[in-house]
Simulated scan of single mutants.
Amino acid sequence: MVVSFLGLLALGSIDFGMAYVRKAEMDNAVRAGVQFGLARHPSMSEIASGIVVAQDVRNAVWGAADFLDADPGAQLEVSFSCQCPDGTAVACTSTAISTLACTDRQTYLEIRLEHDYEMIFAYPGLGQRLSMASNSAVRLN
Rank of each mutant, 00 (worst) to 15 (best):
E110M: 13
I51S: 15
D71F: 03
D71Y: 03
Y117G: 00
A122Q: 10
R22E: 12
A29K: 04
R40C: 10
V138C: 03
E46N: 04
G125E: 06
T93P: 09
F67K: 07
A122K: 08
Q128F: 03
S79D: 02
T95I: 03
K23D: 06
F121C: 01
G63Y: 01
A19T: 03
I111Q: 07
D56H: 07
V3F: 14
Q75D: 05
A10W: 12
L11M: 15
M1T: 07
I111S: 03
A39H: 04
I120L: 04
A74N: 07
R105W: 15
P85G: 00
A96P: 06
E114T: 14
Q35V: 13
I97D: 10
S4Q: 03
F16P: 01
A29M: 02
L113P: 08
T88W: 05
V53T: 15
L38M: 11
A91T: 13
T99L: 04
D71K: 12
L140M: 03
A133Q: 09
S81G: 13
Q35Y: 07
G12D: 07
S43I: 02
C92N: 15
I120C: 02
T103M: 09
N135W: 13
G33R: 00
F16S: 06
Q55G: 12
V53Q: 11
E25N: 11
D104F: 05
T95V: 11
S4V: 15
G125D: 08
Y108E: 07
M44P: 14
T95L: 04
T99E: 04
T99Q: 03
L113F: 06
V78C: 10
H41Y: 13
F80K: 04
A10F: 12
D116V: 05
A48F: 05
Q55A: 13
R112A: 09
I97F: 15
R22V: 14
S81W: 13
A133E: 06
L8V: 06
F5H: 11
Y108F: 10
A70V: 03
I14Y: 14
M26H: 07
K23A: 00
D56W: 02
G50Q: 03
L130M: 06
C102W: 00
V57G: 10
S43Y: 00
C92R: 13
L100S: 01
E25W: 15
V34K: 02
S4Y: 05
L6R: 05
R139N: 10
R31Q: 10
I51H: 12
L140R: 07
L9I: 13
Q128V: 04
G17K: 02
V21D: 11
I120Q: 15
A60R: 00
I47V: 15
R40Q: 13
M1R: 10
G50S: 03
T93F: 01
S136V: 04
E77M: 14
L68M: 12
L38C: 02
R129K: 14
R22P: 10
L11T: 05
Q35I: 08
G125M: 06
E46F: 00
L9M: 08
M1L: 10
A29Y: 10
V90M: 00
F80W: 14
H115K: 11
F36L: 00
S94F: 07
L130R: 05
A74R: 02
V21G: 05
D104V: 08
G17R: 01
S45F: 02
N135P: 11
I120K: 05
Y108R: 06
D56S: 08
